[in-house]
Amino acid sequence: MRFNTRKAVKPGDLNPNDTLFGGRLLEWIDEEAALYAVIQLENRKVVTKFMSEINFVSSARLGDIVEIGIEVVKFGRSSLVLKCEARNKMTHETILTVENITMVNLDDYGRPKAHGKTKIEFVEERLASKTNQLAKRKAATV
């Protein structure tokens, strides 16, 4: 699992028990899942359709750094299913896990749209592929 996002727990993120409010953490996770899906599916129009059982394992306190990890579980026709873990950056103690987050790719009318993706793509791979395509086009015209 790749942990790409970090959030500092601030006073406004706390519940009456002086621990991280679960709703705030779920907001961060939903945003991270959406950003991950947008990048993977190369479409700004994605929505969260489903989140499976959320397992709060431990809590975070003021000043803790929470990191959020996302991993692809599977590619559907118009969806992307993700797995998530949030953990304490300093102790690596798991704070929360979500086994399945389903993100749906949409068309311009808000309807599910096939995305044609079957594997994880990294930005470096896309850039290398586009650079190779441009070089081939340039060579073909010379």
Rank of each mutant, 00 (worst) to 15 (best):
I101L: 06
I95D: 01
L106F: 08
T94E: 09
E93G: 04
L82N: 03
K83M: 07
N100G: 03
K74F: 06
I95S: 02
A86N: 05
L80W: 01
M103P: 00
T102F: 05
S78I: 11
R87M: 15
T102W: 05
K74W: 08
S78Y: 12
E93F: 02
V98H: 00
S78H: 12
K89W: 07
K83T: 09
M103K: 03
E93C: 00
V104M: 07
K89H: 12
V72N: 09
E85V: 15
D107G: 13
M90S: 14
M90P: 01
T102M: 07
R77D: 15
L80I: 06
T94S: 15
R77Y: 13
S78C: 14
V72P: 11
N100T: 07
A86V: 10
M103N: 02
R87D: 11
N88A: 08
K89Q: 13
I101G: 01
N100V: 00
A86H: 05
E85L: 07
V98C: 07
T91H: 04
R77E: 14
T91E: 04
D107P: 09
V73Q: 15
L82D: 02
V98Y: 00
A86T: 07
T97K: 08
C84T: 14
K89I: 01
I95M: 04
T94M: 07
D107C: 13
L96F: 03
A86L: 08
V104D: 05
V81N: 05
N105W: 07
C84K: 01
L82A: 06
V81S: 07
H92P: 00
N105G: 12
L106G: 03
V104E: 06
N105F: 10
